[in-house]
Simulated scan of single mutants.
Amino acid sequence: MFKALQSDSLTLHLIEEENLAQIYALFQGFPDSQEMLEELFRSYLPRYERGRRSNFGFYSLLDGELAGLTLLTVDSWEERAGSTGADVFRHMRGRGATPRSKPHLFYLAFELLGLNRVATGCRVSNLSSKRSIEKTAGFQFEGVMRESGVDDQGEFEDELLYAILRRDWEQLYDKSLIRVIE
């Protein structure tokens, strides 16, 4: 298994059980450290399905500075489908960490894992996530999942759904730009 995926000034470091203590220490000292650590333990830890890893969480370094978390989940090995997500420290928002992480995640999904489809989404009210997704080459808007989640006030909210296919990735991305660090 690889340890990181790197391209230009962004490196995604794979989260493993063995490096959790170091990651916990790395995430200290920020105003939003607690909420980021809660999200790390809720969504970014390794998970396995029938002996195969299905959850690939990463912490990201942008220009050597901790930016946040990003994720590729294999939703179905049979259908070769996955999904992505991200959480960014407040002080690093707006610097492109999330859209710049997608080529790394697409490389993992399509080149290393053999998936055919990667989806993502955001709540209608999350305009910064919508902008980030729309900046990512290849993601196509597929529709609205009506009242698919509950917002902070307990109200139902629609989610916007986007996806990229392997064939789109092959046309849009240069896989030689991603370096696998073992």
Rank of each mutant, 00 (worst) to 15 (best):
L5T: 06
Y24L: 10
A25D: 12
E16A: 10
F41L: 07
E65K: 15
I178V: 15
D174W: 02
E182T: 02
L10I: 11
V124I: 11
I15R: 09
A97Y: 01
Y24F: 13
I164Y: 09
L66T: 01
V88Q: 14
L165S: 06
R52A: 09
N55K: 03
V180G: 15
R93S: 06
G96I: 00
P99N: 02
S176Y: 02
G94L: 05
E39Y: 05
R179V: 07
S128H: 08
A137K: 15
R52K: 12
E17T: 05
A97F: 09
E35L: 07
T73C: 15
D8Y: 06
M1D: 12
E182H: 08
K102R: 14
E170T: 00
E79Q: 13
F106K: 12
M36K: 05
G94F: 04
Y59F: 13
I15V: 11
L45H: 03
E155A: 14
N19E: 08
L12V: 01
R167Q: 15
K3L: 08
R47Y: 02
S76P: 10
I178P: 14
Q6H: 13
N116E: 13
L5N: 09
F56V: 02
P99A: 03
L20P: 04
T136A: 14
L26A: 13
G143S: 08
R53Y: 03
R93P: 11
S7K: 15
V118D: 14
L71F: 05
E79I: 00
L26S: 10
M1T: 11
L14K: 13
Y24H: 14
E170D: 10
Q140T: 09
W77Y: 10
G121D: 02
T73M: 15
R50G: 08
I181D: 11
E18K: 12
G121N: 06
D63R: 12
G149A: 13
R146G: 08
A25G: 10
Y107Q: 03
Q153A: 13
A21W: 00
G57F: 03
L5D: 06
T84H: 10
R50P: 01
E16G: 04
G149S: 13
P99K: 05
L66V: 01
A137V: 04
Y44D: 03
G68C: 07
V118S: 15
L10N: 09
F141R: 04
G68T: 01
Q153W: 05
F110A: 05
D32S: 08
E49N: 07
T136M: 15
R117E: 09
P31N: 07
F89T: 02
L112V: 05
Q28A: 14
L10H: 07
S76A: 08
I178G: 12
G94K: 04
L10E: 04
R93I: 02
G29Q: 03
